[in-house]
Nucleic acid binder design. Structure first.
Lengths: 212, 212, 212, 212
DNA sequence: CATGAATGAGATTTCATTCAT
DNA sequence: GATGAATGAAATCTCATTCAT
């Protein structure tokens, strides 16, 4: 719990300029710029600040981009958590998750890739050492898993499915979300399958997988 | 069919030096080097040739890397196709697919990311124009989809499931594969879920999703 | 004499903040920071003041550093002058000079190097023009030479040596001091020659050089 | 002896471009450029090569400059050694040493300053670690001392002086050379003392210091 | 007066690409 | 064909200086 508190301290933007830089990075991520295609000068000009200013708040491009995407995850998971702990059925909330994923597809992909890539180059330039970075990564993951687990628990309580193994339930949720991405990036738009059909089919697949 | 023929001409390495360069690129991809982390000098030194030689066969780094990964897909899909048209039950073959995916996880991820990224920079440096490139991309996709569709058809014939919509079947296969990736990259190794359990659970989820 | 008065006006720190900045610079010089390694932000943070404040009193980094070292020379030569015009034999005073040099070795070296370096860059940033700067330099030199000459005159009066040429006497004094530096930076500490031996040998060398 | 061999390997320029870069650095040193005033672009343009070429041979500006000055010392000490082991009296050779010093005053000063400065910044950028660098430094020093000691031994043999302590003799030589620098940088040119007088006086001071 | 956030000119460094051999 | 030394455009990063508060 105070781990999350630490993340909050780490990533909550202290200044509007930092926020503007995070937004600039995330815009570029949404426009599918890769890490090396994102130039510091692009970030600062989009953020409407001078190039040198970036280095008042961060010590390298690597730090800017990594913190921007971690901030994004943290910020959005927070919003999602509120939605999931609010009103609505298990199924309705599943579609809210898909909405959310649709809005954040690119940063999520990007984060995954960034966190998985050959990191030597990146780690060397981060202010935190590799050990510290792994802890942060683990915290993010634990946080996300916690949100997913609590959500799946409500599905169980609503008798939507019967599977009681927490890990299988969680991974099945992740798989269903990825499955929806498959529609998004492939066929739903070419008319064969409507967006609604894809969503319902995805939901039912998850339920079927977790039942009996 | 002559589309495939064309790909074959395009990607089948004409010279052992080209093959060595493709292998070098794919090794680096497996070691999680990102596109910008792959240096031309690394490729040529790993391939055991001079740096200038790369430009005898390709006109840019972009061309080398893109062709290497497309070659990889083409080559492996070919092998997979033979497996899938050979002996064995639908379920057995599913596990062969997972084997294959496990062996080729990195290049597959990489290819996906590379083909999805902001391509202006890359396209500008490819010898084919964007139009031409999209055709190649579409051919690859159509080829892969064809293999998947024929495989799923055999599952229908063996009465493993009842779903008759080709697109839903295909995407459910892709989803199941991605779902197995979720285990690979997350939990199966930390002891909660064994590799075998993860595979069986994945298979059954796919069958459940496609039944009734 | 009114030249010295002018130096006094120029370098006697008007405000405790200026004094703190001079001290900060001199500390860094003693720690062997080169001119470009001394950052304005280091000076001000060591002096315990804000960065902008430096520019209330000086118009460039160059001016701060140059005035700090000139101030240092002026201040210390003043102290030395009092010692040399006080009680004690010529030989005793020589050892006091060596004491003093030992304490101020780094700033003295630094000043020498700074005043000798390619000065275009530095001059362009000084509030005084090159002409004016040369005058100040000449004043410093004349002042130092005056102190040395008066001291050597007492050696003559005490019949320590016979050389009557003022310039030869003065330069021999400087040479002896440099010679002691040779011991300080080389051998005296490695056990072969003790600090006391080095000092006595240096003194006797000077006397021998100036006799008959 | 094979230590010297190692230095030779390390500093003898392998390519004319490297030699041209060394010359460019040494020219700038002679023009009194400080380390930070020497820009890589100046070095390469003076050497008549492209900026990137510098990084084919060296991995940082620090390495270029440090190797240039070490090369210079090594090269010149070599020449000097030949002179000192050739024909001529002890006194004649002393004036040859002064000639040599006059020609190489700037690089010698510079080297001294460079090797004495706060080196953190510089060491971090050298390809050799601090340990290795200290060994090279020690080799240079041992080499120079060896040349000096052999020369002073001949003075003893020619009965120019009586002092038998090797370290005192060596340091007295160094002091005499520095003493001549005092004339060079101060008074000899303003007409009071001729260049010849300064040299003779310096020689006699050294002999007097080392006699009886 | 005092401050420190903001700036951008200018430095170092990288690496895809060329081309003489 | 094959090579790798040479290149320079373009990137990251530093830090003296300004100026609104």
């Amino acid at each position: 719990m105070n781990q999350i508190k630490e993340m909050e301290d780490l990533f909550y933007p202290k200044s509007p300029k930092v926020k503007a830089m995070y937004d600039a990075v995330l815009d570029m991520v949404n426009e599918r710029y890769s890490f090396s295609q994102i130039k510091v000068s692009d970030i600062t000009s989009r953020a409407g600040i001078g190039k040198g200013t970036a280095y008042e708040y961060f010590s390298s491009k690597e730090e800017i981009v990594v913190k921007a995407v971690l901030y994004n995850i943290y910020y959005n998971m927070h919003r999602m958590e509120r939605v999931l702990s609010g009103e609505g059925s298990f199924e309705e909330k599943f579609y809210r998750i898909l909405d959310f994923m649709e809005d954040n597809m690119e940063p999520l992909r990007y984060t995954t890739e960034l966190l998985r890539g050959k990191c030597e180059t990146i780690h060397k330039k981060l202010p935190m050492d590799e050990e510290r970075f792994k802890i942060v990564q683990a915290q993010v993951k634990a946080y996300v898993n916690g949100v997913a687990d609590r959500y799946m628990e409500t599905g169980m309580q609503e008798s939507c499915f019967t599977q009681s193994n927490v890990i299988l339930r969680r991974n099945t949720l992740y798989t269903a979300i990825l499955g929806y991405f498959v529609y998004l990036t492939n066929d739903y738009y070419d008319g064969d399958i409507s967006r609604e059909e894809a969503r319902r089919f995805t939901y039912q697949g998850m339920i079927a997988t977790l039942s009996k």
